[in-house]
Every structure is written in C-alpha cells, then in structure tokens.
C-alpha cells in the first residue's frame, strides 16, 4: 500500500483522476467486524445480494455466485438480510 507520493508538478492539472474506477486498489475490507460466508449448496443464484451490495463485492463467475470479494466487503450484512434462502450468514471476523 505504501507508495511514493507524486510531487505537485507531476500531478494532473486540476487534480483530475485519469484512471476510472481506481479505488479498487484501496482495500476497505479492513473495516469489517463480521464477514459474510456464502453457502453454495443453498444458493439459488437469484442475485438479490448483488443488487443490494453497496460495495460491489459479490463475485459472480459464469452466472453463479461464487463468494465475496473480502478485500472490499465492509461487512454491512445487507446480503445476508436480503437472501431468501439464508445462504449467506454473518460470522465474526477472528484472527
């Protein structure tokens, strides 16, 4: 994470950010107290969790929910709340 900051004359004029969506390189997963655990056996792939996730952290591969992007998930628990099959449970984060 630690990187050399650019000096004033190397920055884009007006403080523009030229790379779209580069916040992906900032990891908000460290905020989490509870982590979502996905149970693929119960999941019916309704994608409600994907629609309700504020952090775009539901990983979908070939039309199937495969898990959570724990680098960015803040552990709010909306996915577990909205899941009609209780396929997502919130578990305490432990070292």
């Amino acid at each position: 994470m630690k990187e050399q900051k650019k000096s004033w004359n190397e920055l884009p004029i007006g403080g523009s950010i030229l790379e779209a969506g580069n916040s992906k390189n900032y990891f908000t997963g460290t905020w989490r107290t509870f982590k979502p655990v996905h149970n693929a056996k119960l999941c019916i792939n309704c994608y409600f969790c994907w629609m309700h996730c504020p952090d775009d952290s539901i990983v979908i591969e070939n039309g199937k929910v495969t898990g959570m992007d724990l680098d960015h998930c803040k552990g709010c628990g909306v996915c577990a709340e909205v899941c009609p099959k209780k396929a997502i449970t919130m578990e305490k984060e432990e070292k």
Partner: peptide, 21 residues
C-alpha cells in the same frame, strides 16, 4: 438481474461510504 450482472458496475468498490449505505 441475469442480464444486469453481465454489465460492468458503474461504481467500483473501494469507495469509503459507510458500511451498509
């Protein structure tokens, strides 16, 4: 939803909105 998931999400993760906003 099965069509929407194929599109690119317009807002990338890593933003610092409160958890659950």
């Amino acid at each position: 939803l099965k069509d929407l998931i194929k599109k690119q999400a317009p807002l990338a993760s890593g933003h610092r909105m409160c958890a659950g906003c």
